[in-house]
């Protein structure tokens, strides 16, 4: 992997939500980095905190949430230390975002042209007719002039998502956050959108943070994957490694649950070997009872849990280097 410029570096990010006056930690000490031109996937189930990470990065956390610690370094600047107005200028222009359901995230009372103009005006940029047509052609819209005149509800879901992507790219951002960009779309359209993101990434030298629960869409586009569970990063690695030989039991379960993805035979035997080598220190197969406060978050659902799991491990290198890490005692 070539040494390259870090576009975004998240260090020790913790976010808490206030629920009935109690602060609940939804994101706990997340480290994450994205290099220039890299696509990084943040994968996890609902409630794992992955979308909260995205909202924290662009500073649009809901009013009952706060960042309790950490740094979000974008191109050398800590976004958490920026003023309101400075941060506003970063959003949309430097870091852009595409959301899940394009039809509810595009104002139904504005035409596509208005939507482009809104973003341009917010940042004091002029976008001419040619720029708009060019942007829509980039996202492979075949009749840009008609689409510019349309209201979002007159577009199909896939078309609306292309438009949302075009709007997100209108001011040539360096980083695009795609928060479950295909979840609300048909299966065939999902593939098209993923292919489109890949093309645009190459064309515009874009970095992408792809947030998803769907490992199937990670494979074709992401360079590296962060797996998140219960507010923690539990595994980091290259996409190839994680899909072929996942290490953390949660990642293994996640891959098993995904349609059309199977663990390779080598991965299973490797896992068996690791688990057997640990069996001497194992008290029981599986863990029953209440998860201890200090323990591994996955302990209650983990089939490999043993006595040491009542203390939460750090991210442990699993391949002898620090590119692949898993938060699991099996690899100690």
């Amino acid at each position: 992997m070539p040494a390259s410029i870090k576009v975004l570096e998240v260090r020790g990010l913790s976010v808490e939500y206030s629920v009935d006056g109690v602060w609940i930690r939804a994101v706990d000490g997340v480290d994450l980095e994205i290099s220039r031109g890299e696509c990084v996937a943040l994968v996890g189930e609902s409630g794992s905190g992955k979308s909260t990470v995205a909202q924290a990065i662009i500073g649009v956390l809901p009013p009952n949430a706060r960042v309790s610690s950490g740094e979000i370094i974008y191109m050398g600047r800590d976004l958490l230390k920026l003023g309101r107005e400075e941060l506003r200028r970063v959003r949309g222009r430097e870091i852009s975002i595409v959301f899940q359901d394009p039809l509810s995230y595009l104002n139904p009372l504005r035409t596509v042209r208005d939507l482009f103009m809104d973003v341009a005006r917010d940042h004091g940029v002029d976008l001419g007719e040619d720029d708009l047509v060019d942007l829509l052609r980039r996202v492979r819209v075949t009749d840009p002039h008609r689409v510019l005149r349309s209201y979002p509800f007159q577009l199909s879901g896939g078309m609306a998502q292309r438009v949302a992507i075009a709007i997100a790219l209108a001011l040539k951002p360096k980083l695009l956050i795609a928060d479950e960009p295909t979840t609300a779309l048909d299966l065939t359209i999902q593939a098209q959108i993923i292919r489109l993101l890949l093309l645009i990434k190459e064309e515009m030298d874009l970095s992408i943070l792809l947030i998803t629960h769907d490992l199937g869409m990670v494979a074709p586009i992401a360079d590296r994957v962060y797996v998140m569970y219960s507010g923690r990063i539990v595994e980091v690695g290259s996409t190839g490694n994680i899909l072929a030989s996942p290490r953390h039991p949660y990642t293994i379960d996640l891959i098993r649950s995904a349609r059309g993805l199977y663990l390779s035979r080598e991965a299973v035997s490797e896992l068996d070997r690791v688990v057997r080598s640990r069996s001497s220190s194992r008290s029981s197969h599986g863990y029953s009872g209440k998860p201890p406060r200090e323990g591994c978050r996955y302990i209650a659902r983990c089939p490999y849990a043993f006595d040491k799991c009542s203390i939460e491990p750090n991210l442990i290198p699993v391949d002898g280097d620090d590119r692949s890490l898993a938060r699991c005692w099996l690899y100690e």
Binding site: I58, R89, S96, I97, D118
Partner: peptide
């Protein structure tokens, strides 16, 4: 509280922009 207001904010719209472009038409 609509999603597109969050989207506009995420794309760098200021409070005034949101009041005039997103909320007023509604």
């Amino acid at each position: 509280s609509r999603e597109y207001v969050l989207a506009a904010r995420s794309m760098g719209a200021s409070d005034l922009d949101i009041m005039f472009s997103e909320i007023a038409p509604n």
